[in-house]
Design a protein around this nucleic acid. Structure first.
Lengths: 214, 214
DNA sequence: GGTAGAATCTAATTCATATTAGATTATTGT
DNA sequence: ACAATAATCTAATATGAATTAGATTCTACC
C-alpha cells in the first residue's frame, strides 16, 4: 500500500517469488493478479509493466522451478559416483529443494496439471494466434525438460540394475514412484515440523535405496 | 444439447461423476458449472436443481472419493492378516482404485490443496454466515476422515515394526512416502499404457514391502 | 386425460478479474 | 538541474462465471 521511496521498484524475481507463493496456496486459476501484486505492495496493473500477462508470469514461475531442479539434478546424474550414491544424492537434493523453495516446488507439483489443461480455445478467446503459438511452444519445451529430469533418474537406475547394484525393477514405474513420493513432500511439508527437509530426505532415500537391494 | 425424452433426468451420481471428470482435467477453480453441465447434456442453471451451489457439488465429489477409499482400506487394516500382507493389499487397492476411478482419484489428489485454501473471506463474499459455517464443518469432517485413512496405514506399519516384521522406520514419513507414490499415480496414469492398474500396483507394493525388510 | 411436482430451459443479474489507457512519480546519466 | 525513461498509480473496459427468476416440458399417478 505504502510507497517505497528508497527502494522503489520491485524486481521481476521478486514478483516471480511472490507469484509462486500465492500459486502454492491457491492454485493457478484461483490466483489473481491482485493477490500477487499485494504480496509485493503493488497494484495489479503494475505487474503488466514486468510481464506481458498473467500466463507469462505463471510460466516464469514454472520455468524458474524447472531450471532450478534440473541444474541441481543433472550434475549428479552425470557424475562418476556409483548408482546408489547418485540416487541417494538426487533424491536428497530433490526433497530438500522442495522443502526450501516451498513456493516454487509446490507450484510445480500442483500446476503441471493446470498447465496441461490451460484453455487453448480455438474461438472466443482473448489470446492472439501468435500468443497461442508461443504458448504451445513454451509448453513443449517445458515438457521436454520435465522429461529430461525424469530421464536423469531413469538412467541412474538403469545403470544400477545393469551393474547388478540394484535388483531388477520396472524402471519407469520405479522412478515415478520415487518422484511421486518426493513431490508429495511439497504437499504436506510445513516448516517447523518434527523433521526438517534434511531429515525427511534422509528417510525417503533410505526407503528407496533399501527397496533396490538385490 | 439434444433433449432426452425417454431417459430425461440425470441423476445426482451422474453429475458427481461428470464433475469429477472435469475436475481432474481442469482443477477446482478452472472447472465451470457450464463445463460440468455440458458433460451431462444440461445447462449450467439446471445443475442448481440438484446441488445448492458449485461448492456443494465439488464437496460431493470429494466426499464420494473419500467414502470409497475408506470403505476399501479400513476392512483390510482391521483384518487378521499379517502386517506385510495388509500393507500389500492396502497399497494395491489404493493404487488400483486410483486407476479405475480416475476421476474421483485425481480429484482427491489435486483438490485437497484447493480445498484447504478455498476462499472463506470475512467480508465481501457471497457466502452467508450459515453457509460458511456449514462449509467449515464439512471441511473438518473431511480432514478427520482423511486422517483416519492415513492412520490405517500408520497402524499397520506400527504393528509390523513392533512385531519385528518390518525394520524400524520413521512411521509418519514412511506412510507419507507411500501415499505420495500412490497418489501420484493418478497424476500420470493413462488408460491403455504399458501396464494396467494391477501391474502398477504390483510394482509399487513390491518396492515398499522390500524397503521394509528388516 | 388431467394434474402435481420434478427436471430443464432461457434470460437476467451480479460480481470479480484480467487487461488497457492515460496520468504521475522516481531514477539515472549528463 | 534536466530530460529520458522506468515503475507506479488510478480509472476504465470487457468478459466470463456463478447464481437467481420465471417460464416450460416431462412423468408418474389418479
Amino acid at each position: 500500500m505504502a510507497r517505497k521511496p528508497a527502494d522503489q521498484s520491485v524486481s521481476k524475481a521478486d514478483i516471480i517469488q511472490a507469484a509462486a507463493e500465492v500459486l502454492r496456496q491457491k492454485g493457478y486459476e484461483a490466483t489473481t493478479m491482485k493477490d500477487i501484486a499485494a504480496e509485493v505492495d503493488l497494484t495489479a496493473a503494475s505487474l503488466y509493466h514486468h510481464f506481458k500477462n498473467k500466463n507469462a508470469l505463471m510460466l516464469a514461475v514454472l520455468e524458474g522451478g524447472m531450471d532450478y531442479a534440473l541444474s541441481h539434478i543433472q550434475p549428479i546424474a552425470e557424475s562418476n559416483l556409483a548408482p546408489a550414491e547418485k540416487l541417494r544424492q538426487m533424491i536428497h537434493i530433490h526433497v530438500v529443494s522442495l522443502t526450501q523453495h516451498t513456493a516454487v516446488g509446490a507450484a510445480m507439483v500442483f500446476e503441471i496439471g493446470a498447465l496441461i489443461g490451460v484453455k487453448t480455445p480455438g474461438e472466443g478467446s482473448k489470446m492472439s494466434a501468435k500468443a497461442v503459438h508461443e504458448f504451445e511452444e513454451w509448453r513443449e519445451r517445458f515438457f521436454d525438460r520435465r522429461a529430461a529430469f525424469e530421464d536423469c533418474f531413469r538412467r541412474v537406475v538403469q545403470v544400477g540394475v545393469e551393474v547388478g547394484e540394484f535388483r531388477q525393477v520396472d524402471i519407469p514405474i520405479f522412478v515415478k514412484t520415487v518422484l511421486g513420493a518426493n513431490n508429495w513432500v511439497s504437499v504436506w511439508y510445513r516448516p517447523g515440523g518434527r523433521l526438517d527437509g534434511e531429515g525427511i530426505a534422509e528417510q525417503i532415500t533410505e526407503t528407496f535405496l533399501r527397496s533396490l537391494e538385490p
